[in-house]
Computed example of a mutant assay.
Amino acid sequence: MIGRIAKSFKDASGAGLLLVSLAACSTAAQAATYTMYRDAGCGCCLKWADHAEAGLDATVKVENAPNMQTVKDLHGVPVALRSCHTMLVEGYVIEGHVPAEAVEKLLREKPDDVTGIAVPGMPIGSPGMEQQGIKQPYQVIAFGPKGQRVFANYN
């Protein structure tokens, strides 16, 4: 009888350890740091950060940067792909008004040949750039050491 109780306790504690381990992994995944750099005078950046927080179920830390060109240079954002704000998360660069679902896809797939993804310019209708239902088609472009490619289309 005592042997069965000891075995049950051992099995239960093993299951408990497994649950604690899984919870720790889950917490670690949710604890990714989302840091967005922006020019202090730009309002659309804050609208995009709200979109990202809601869509990614995350908190975006906003940092005002006195020189956004330097931020983009330091993180390898190609000149042709630049926009107003730059976010760093899990080693990737998110440039401009990228929809949260594209960021989520990037973080889920974790392509090793991609430095980041970008929406060049500030297309009307992209997250943070909403204007009375008007939407311009745009693309999310992946960039990295092997060049650039279309990551997602939004029409």
Rank of each mutant, 00 (worst) to 15 (best):
A31W: 14
V20L: 14
S83T: 03
G16F: 11
A49K: 14
S126T: 02
T33P: 04
A28M: 06
D73P: 05
Y34A: 09
V103K: 00
E109I: 10
F151G: 02
A24T: 10
H85L: 06
G125R: 04
A102E: 05
S26L: 08
I94C: 03
L17T: 15
E104N: 12
M36S: 11
Q136L: 03
D39P: 11
L22E: 15
W48N: 03
Y154D: 01
A24R: 09
V140S: 12
A80Y: 01
G55V: 06
K47Y: 12
T35H: 07
I2H: 05
K146H: 00
A52L: 10
I141W: 04
L22P: 08
L22Y: 06
V150I: 10
G16V: 11
A29K: 14
L56C: 14
D57Y: 12
Y92K: 02
M1K: 10
A12V: 03
K146S: 01
V20T: 08
E53S: 09
K61E: 12
V71Y: 06
V98D: 06
R4K: 11
L18M: 15
V20Q: 13
S13Y: 11
W48I: 01
L74N: 15
C42D: 04
T70H: 12
H51T: 04
M1D: 12
L107R: 07
K135Q: 07
E109M: 07
V62C: 09
V60L: 05
M36K: 10
T27G: 10
V77F: 00
H85N: 11
Q131A: 05
E109L: 14
G55S: 09
G116V: 05
E95D: 06
T115F: 01
Y138M: 07
G128S: 07
G147F: 02
A100S: 14
H51N: 12
C84V: 04
A24Y: 08
G3H: 09
G121F: 03
T70V: 10
A15C: 05
T33W: 04
S126N: 14
P78F: 00
P120L: 05
F9P: 06
A23L: 13
I2E: 09
A28L: 14
S83E: 00
S83G: 07
V60Q: 05
G91T: 04
A65H: 09
P99L: 11
L46G: 15
E63G: 10
K105A: 15
H51A: 11
